[in-house]
Simulated assay, not measured.
Amino acid sequence: MSKLKRPLAVMAGCCLSVAAALPYAHAAEQSVLRVSAIPDEAPTELQRKFEPLGKYLENELGMEVRFQPVSDYAGVVEALDAGRLDLAWLGGFTFVQARLRTGDAIPLVQREQDAAFTSTFIASNPDVDEHADLKGKSFAFGSVSSTSGHLMPRYFLQQADIDVDAFFGRVAFSNAHDATVAWVASGRVDGGALNSSVWNKLIEEGKVDTDKVHAYATTPTYYDYNWTVRGDLDPELAERIEQAFLKLDPSNPEHKAILDLQRASRFIETSPENYKGIEQAARSAGLLQ
Protein backbone atom coordinates (compact mmCIF):
# COMPACT_ATOMS: atom_id res chain seq x y z
CA MET A 1 0.00 0.00 0.00
CA SER A 2 1.43 3.41 -0.93
CA LYS A 3 2.44 6.01 1.63
CA LEU A 4 -0.46 8.17 0.46
CA LYS A 5 -3.12 5.48 0.66
CA ARG A 6 -2.29 4.15 4.13
CA PRO A 7 -3.92 7.14 5.90
CA LEU A 8 -7.11 6.44 3.96
CA ALA A 9 -7.30 2.90 5.29
CA VAL A 10 -6.90 4.13 8.86
CA MET A 11 -9.47 6.85 8.35
CA ALA A 12 -11.96 4.42 6.86
CA GLY A 13 -11.60 2.14 9.86
CA CYS A 14 -12.00 4.92 12.41
CA CYS A 15 -14.65 7.19 10.93
CA LEU A 16 -18.21 6.87 9.75
CA SER A 17 -18.48 6.34 6.02
CA VAL A 18 -20.22 9.67 5.52
CA ALA A 19 -17.46 11.55 7.35
CA ALA A 20 -14.77 9.66 5.47
CA ALA A 21 -16.36 10.67 2.19
CA LEU A 22 -16.28 14.38 2.96
CA PRO A 23 -12.65 14.99 1.88
CA TYR A 24 -13.41 13.38 -1.47
CA ALA A 25 -16.45 15.58 -1.97
CA HIS A 26 -14.24 18.59 -1.30
CA ALA A 27 -11.50 17.28 -3.62
CA ALA A 28 -14.02 16.72 -6.41
CA GLU A 29 -14.73 20.45 -6.34
CA GLN A 30 -11.06 21.37 -6.80
CA SER A 31 -10.52 22.38 -10.42
CA VAL A 32 -7.17 24.16 -10.15
CA LEU A 33 -3.84 22.83 -8.88
CA ARG A 34 -1.93 25.77 -7.40
CA VAL A 35 1.82 25.33 -7.79
CA SER A 36 4.86 27.39 -6.82
CA ALA A 37 8.62 27.08 -6.38
CA ILE A 38 11.29 28.62 -4.20
CA PRO A 39 12.70 31.64 -6.10
CA ASP A 40 16.26 30.34 -6.38
CA GLU A 41 16.62 31.67 -9.92
CA ALA A 42 15.25 34.65 -11.85
CA PRO A 43 11.42 34.66 -12.14
CA THR A 44 11.55 34.42 -15.93
CA GLU A 45 13.75 31.33 -15.71
CA LEU A 46 11.45 29.65 -13.19
CA GLN A 47 8.45 30.29 -15.45
CA ARG A 48 10.31 28.99 -18.51
CA LYS A 49 11.26 25.78 -16.70
CA PHE A 50 7.77 25.18 -15.35
CA GLU A 51 5.63 25.89 -18.44
CA PRO A 52 5.98 22.51 -20.24
CA LEU A 53 5.80 20.63 -16.92
CA GLY A 54 2.61 22.50 -16.07
CA LYS A 55 1.01 21.54 -19.39
CA TYR A 56 2.04 17.92 -18.86
CA LEU A 57 0.47 17.88 -15.39
CA GLU A 58 -2.72 19.42 -16.77
CA ASN A 59 -3.01 16.58 -19.29
CA GLU A 60 -2.23 13.91 -16.71
CA LEU A 61 -4.49 15.25 -13.98
CA GLY A 62 -7.31 16.63 -16.12
CA MET A 63 -7.34 19.95 -14.30
CA GLU A 64 -5.93 23.44 -14.63
CA VAL A 65 -2.41 23.85 -13.24
CA ARG A 66 -1.61 27.42 -12.22
CA PHE A 67 1.91 28.60 -11.33
CA GLN A 68 1.97 31.22 -8.57
CA PRO A 69 5.39 32.90 -8.15
CA VAL A 70 6.47 34.07 -4.71
CA SER A 71 8.91 36.79 -3.73
CA ASP A 72 10.98 34.79 -1.25
CA TYR A 73 11.53 31.33 0.23
CA ALA A 74 9.45 32.06 3.32
CA GLY A 75 6.51 32.92 1.07
CA VAL A 76 6.30 29.32 -0.20
CA VAL A 77 6.27 27.91 3.33
CA GLU A 78 3.64 30.41 4.44
CA ALA A 79 1.43 29.68 1.41
CA LEU A 80 1.59 25.91 1.99
CA ASP A 81 0.78 26.38 5.65
CA ALA A 82 -2.19 28.64 4.84
CA GLY A 83 -3.54 26.28 2.18
CA ARG A 84 -2.98 28.77 -0.64
CA LEU A 85 -0.70 26.29 -2.47
CA ASP A 86 -1.19 22.62 -3.27
CA LEU A 87 2.23 21.67 -4.67
CA ALA A 88 5.64 23.31 -4.34
CA TRP A 89 9.20 22.80 -5.52
CA LEU A 90 11.28 23.08 -2.36
CA GLY A 91 14.92 22.86 -1.42
CA GLY A 92 15.83 20.43 1.33
CA PHE A 93 16.04 23.14 4.01
CA THR A 94 12.81 24.80 2.87
CA PHE A 95 11.10 21.41 3.07
CA VAL A 96 12.36 20.97 6.63
CA GLN A 97 10.99 24.42 7.50
CA ALA A 98 7.65 23.60 5.82
CA ARG A 99 7.42 20.25 7.60
CA LEU A 100 8.15 21.80 10.99
CA ARG A 101 5.69 24.63 10.43
CA THR A 102 2.80 22.64 8.96
CA GLY A 103 3.43 19.34 10.72
CA ASP A 104 2.25 17.32 7.73
CA ALA A 105 3.74 18.57 4.43
CA ILE A 106 4.44 15.50 2.26
CA PRO A 107 7.47 15.21 -0.05
CA LEU A 108 6.34 13.18 -3.07
CA VAL A 109 9.27 12.94 -5.45
CA GLN A 110 12.80 14.16 -5.97
CA ARG A 111 15.08 14.11 -8.96
CA GLU A 112 17.46 11.18 -9.04
CA GLN A 113 20.26 13.74 -8.74
CA ASP A 114 18.85 15.13 -5.49
CA ALA A 115 19.97 12.06 -3.56
CA ALA A 116 23.58 13.18 -4.06
CA PHE A 117 23.50 16.96 -4.47
CA THR A 118 26.42 19.34 -4.01
CA SER A 119 27.24 23.05 -3.73
CA THR A 120 30.04 24.81 -5.58
CA PHE A 121 32.36 27.48 -4.18
CA ILE A 122 33.44 30.18 -6.63
CA ALA A 123 35.85 33.11 -6.63
CA SER A 124 36.91 35.98 -8.89
CA ASN A 125 40.65 35.90 -8.16
CA PRO A 126 42.26 33.11 -10.24
CA ASP A 127 44.77 32.53 -7.47
CA VAL A 128 42.05 31.35 -5.08
CA ASP A 129 42.11 27.55 -4.91
CA GLU A 130 41.04 26.89 -1.30
CA HIS A 131 38.93 28.53 1.40
CA ALA A 132 41.98 29.93 3.20
CA ASP A 133 42.67 32.18 0.20
CA LEU A 134 39.43 34.07 0.90
CA LYS A 135 40.14 34.82 4.57
CA GLY A 136 39.12 38.41 5.29
CA LYS A 137 37.47 38.78 1.86
CA SER A 138 33.82 39.36 0.99
CA PHE A 139 31.61 36.33 0.38
CA ALA A 140 28.05 35.81 -0.90
CA PHE A 141 25.50 33.10 -0.24
CA GLY A 142 22.16 32.90 -2.05
CA SER A 143 18.99 33.08 0.04
CA VAL A 144 19.23 32.68 3.81
CA SER A 145 16.82 29.72 3.47
CA SER A 146 18.62 28.10 0.53
CA THR A 147 19.91 24.57 1.12
CA SER A 148 22.57 24.57 -1.59
CA GLY A 149 23.20 28.32 -1.60
CA HIS A 150 23.60 28.83 2.14
CA LEU A 151 22.87 26.08 4.68
CA MET A 152 25.07 23.29 3.35
CA PRO A 153 28.00 25.48 2.25
CA ARG A 154 27.93 27.13 5.68
CA TYR A 155 27.66 23.74 7.39
CA PHE A 156 30.61 22.25 5.50
CA LEU A 157 32.69 25.38 6.15
CA GLN A 158 31.84 24.91 9.82
CA GLN A 159 32.93 21.27 9.58
CA ALA A 160 36.27 22.57 8.27
CA ASP A 161 36.59 24.69 11.44
CA ILE A 162 35.73 27.92 9.65
CA ASP A 163 33.51 30.36 11.54
CA VAL A 164 31.86 31.98 8.52
CA ASP A 165 30.99 35.31 10.15
CA ALA A 166 34.45 35.76 11.63
CA PHE A 167 36.46 34.27 8.75
CA PHE A 168 35.14 36.45 5.91
CA GLY A 169 35.47 40.22 5.96
CA ARG A 170 31.85 40.61 4.86
CA VAL A 171 29.01 38.12 4.30
CA ALA A 172 26.15 39.01 1.95
CA PHE A 173 23.07 37.29 0.54
CA SER A 174 22.30 37.59 -3.18
CA ASN A 175 18.93 35.74 -2.86
CA ALA A 176 19.48 33.62 -6.01
CA HIS A 177 22.13 31.27 -7.38
CA ASP A 178 22.57 33.08 -10.70
CA ALA A 179 22.78 36.38 -8.82
CA THR A 180 25.65 35.00 -6.72
CA VAL A 181 27.60 34.26 -9.90
CA ALA A 182 26.87 37.75 -11.22
CA TRP A 183 28.03 39.33 -7.95
CA VAL A 184 31.33 37.45 -8.01
CA ALA A 185 31.92 38.08 -11.72
CA SER A 186 31.28 41.83 -11.30
CA GLY A 187 33.60 42.11 -8.29
CA ARG A 188 30.79 42.99 -5.91
CA VAL A 189 32.08 40.16 -3.71
CA ASP A 190 35.27 38.10 -3.83
CA GLY A 191 33.70 34.67 -3.50
CA GLY A 192 30.43 32.81 -3.12
CA ALA A 193 28.60 29.51 -2.95
CA LEU A 194 25.75 28.16 -5.05
CA ASN A 195 23.83 25.14 -6.29
CA SER A 196 26.20 23.00 -8.39
CA SER A 197 23.43 22.22 -10.88
CA VAL A 198 22.85 25.91 -11.60
CA TRP A 199 26.60 26.52 -11.85
CA ASN A 200 26.96 23.71 -14.39
CA LYS A 201 23.94 24.94 -16.35
CA LEU A 202 25.34 28.47 -16.55
CA ILE A 203 28.69 27.09 -17.74
CA GLU A 204 27.01 24.89 -20.38
CA GLU A 205 24.94 27.82 -21.65
CA GLY A 206 27.97 30.10 -21.87
CA LYS A 207 26.54 32.51 -19.29
CA VAL A 208 29.68 32.55 -17.13
CA ASP A 209 32.78 34.53 -18.06
CA THR A 210 35.41 32.08 -16.83
CA ASP A 211 38.02 34.83 -17.07
CA LYS A 212 36.17 36.57 -14.24
CA VAL A 213 34.93 33.72 -12.05
CA HIS A 214 35.95 30.12 -11.46
CA ALA A 215 34.98 27.19 -9.21
CA TYR A 216 37.58 26.25 -6.61
CA ALA A 217 35.80 23.66 -4.41
CA THR A 218 32.74 21.39 -4.14
CA THR A 219 30.97 20.18 -1.01
CA PRO A 220 30.33 16.54 -0.06
CA THR A 221 26.93 15.22 -1.17
CA TYR A 222 23.57 15.65 0.58
CA TYR A 223 19.83 15.34 -0.18
CA ASP A 224 18.22 18.42 -1.66
CA TYR A 225 15.18 19.42 -3.74
CA ASN A 226 11.76 17.76 -3.85
CA TRP A 227 8.16 18.33 -4.93
CA THR A 228 6.00 18.63 -1.81
CA VAL A 229 2.22 18.77 -1.33
CA ARG A 230 0.32 20.27 1.60
CA GLY A 231 -0.59 17.61 4.11
CA ASP A 232 -4.35 18.02 3.81
CA LEU A 233 -4.45 17.67 0.02
CA ASP A 234 -6.78 14.87 -1.09
CA PRO A 235 -4.59 11.72 -0.92
CA GLU A 236 -5.98 10.41 -4.21
CA LEU A 237 -4.96 13.62 -6.00
CA ALA A 238 -1.53 13.54 -4.32
CA GLU A 239 -1.08 9.95 -5.52
CA ARG A 240 -1.96 10.97 -9.08
CA ILE A 241 0.53 13.85 -8.95
CA GLU A 242 3.26 11.51 -7.72
CA GLN A 243 2.53 8.97 -10.45
CA ALA A 244 2.59 11.70 -13.11
CA PHE A 245 6.14 12.63 -12.08
CA LEU A 246 7.26 9.00 -11.88
CA LYS A 247 5.80 8.38 -15.34
CA LEU A 248 8.15 10.89 -17.01
CA ASP A 249 10.34 8.72 -19.24
CA PRO A 250 13.65 10.04 -20.66
CA SER A 251 13.24 7.73 -23.67
CA ASN A 252 10.12 9.71 -24.65
CA PRO A 253 11.28 12.90 -26.49
CA GLU A 254 8.47 15.04 -25.07
CA HIS A 255 9.15 13.80 -21.55
CA LYS A 256 12.90 14.26 -21.99
CA ALA A 257 12.38 17.92 -22.89
CA ILE A 258 10.52 18.39 -19.60
CA LEU A 259 13.15 16.48 -17.63
CA ASP A 260 15.97 18.44 -19.24
CA LEU A 261 14.43 21.74 -18.18
CA GLN A 262 14.19 20.36 -14.65
CA ARG A 263 17.78 19.13 -14.94
CA ALA A 264 16.51 15.68 -14.02
CA SER A 265 17.45 12.27 -15.39
CA ARG A 266 14.16 11.06 -13.90
CA PHE A 267 12.03 11.50 -10.78
CA ILE A 268 12.03 8.98 -7.93
CA GLU A 269 10.01 8.60 -4.73
CA THR A 270 11.24 10.35 -1.62
CA SER A 271 10.31 10.55 2.06
CA PRO A 272 10.68 12.92 5.05
CA GLU A 273 13.42 10.67 6.47
CA ASN A 274 15.73 11.65 3.60
CA TYR A 275 15.87 15.19 4.98
CA LYS A 276 16.76 14.42 8.59
CA GLY A 277 20.40 15.15 7.78
CA ILE A 278 19.41 18.59 6.46
CA GLU A 279 17.54 19.32 9.69
CA GLN A 280 20.54 18.24 11.76
CA ALA A 281 22.86 20.41 9.65
CA ALA A 282 20.53 23.39 10.08
CA ARG A 283 20.49 22.97 13.84
CA SER A 284 24.28 22.56 13.92
CA ALA A 285 24.73 25.72 11.83
CA GLY A 286 22.40 27.65 14.15
CA LEU A 287 19.74 28.16 11.47
CA LEU A 288 17.08 26.21 13.38
CA GLN A 289 16.45 26.48 17.10
Rank of each mutant, 00 (worst) to 15 (best):
F95C: 06
D163F: 02
L151I: 06
R99P: 04
V144R: 13
V96L: 07
F139C: 05
G136Y: 10
G92P: 11
A115N: 14
A98N: 03
A123W: 11
L157H: 08
T120C: 00
G92A: 11
R154S: 07
T102F: 12
Q159M: 09
A140H: 04
R101L: 05
S143M: 08
Y155P: 00
P153G: 06
A98K: 05
T120N: 01
R111P: 05
A172I: 10
H131Q: 04
D133H: 14
G103K: 11
K135Y: 12
Y155I: 00
P107E: 00
F121N: 05
T120Q: 03
T120M: 01
E130F: 13
Q159S: 03
A123Y: 13
A116H: 14
D165N: 12
A105C: 12
P107T: 03
E112K: 12
F141L: 02
P107I: 00
V96D: 10
V144A: 08
A172R: 14
D163R: 10
F117I: 08
G92T: 08
R111L: 10
F121K: 05
S145P: 15
I122K: 03
E112R: 10
R170W: 03
T120W: 01
A132H: 11
S145N: 15
T120H: 01
A123K: 06
D161N: 13
A160W: 11
L108E: 03
P126D: 03
S138E: 07
A123F: 11
R99G: 04
K135Q: 15
D165A: 06
P107N: 00
D165I: 04
E130N: 12
D104E: 14
F168N: 08
T120E: 03
F167L: 04
H150N: 15
G169S: 00
P126C: 04
R99E: 11
D133P: 14
A160L: 14
V109E: 02
V109Q: 04
T118C: 06
S124C: 05
F168V: 05
F167E: 02
L100I: 13
P126I: 08
R154H: 14
D165G: 06
A132R: 15
A98P: 03
D129P: 09
S119D: 06
D129R: 15
A160R: 15
K135M: 14
V128R: 03
L151E: 12
D129W: 15
D163A: 09
R111M: 10
Q113F: 09
L151T: 01
A98V: 05
I122H: 06
I106H: 06
I162T: 09
A140W: 06
D165R: 04
D165Y: 09
P107H: 01
R99D: 03
G103H: 15
Q110P: 00
F121E: 06
L134Q: 01
P126T: 07
L134D: 07
A172K: 09
M152G: 00
V164A: 10
K137H: 13
L151S: 09
F117P: 07
R111K: 14
P126A: 01
L134S: 03
R101I: 01
D114I: 01
I106L: 10
F93R: 02
R111E: 09
D104T: 09
K135L: 13
S148W: 01
R170H: 10
V144N: 08
T102D: 05
E112Y: 10
R170C: 02
S148Q: 00
S145V: 15
A105L: 07
R99T: 02
D104H: 14
Q159Y: 10
I162L: 08
R154C: 08
H131S: 06
S146H: 11
H150Y: 15
F117R: 13
F139H: 08
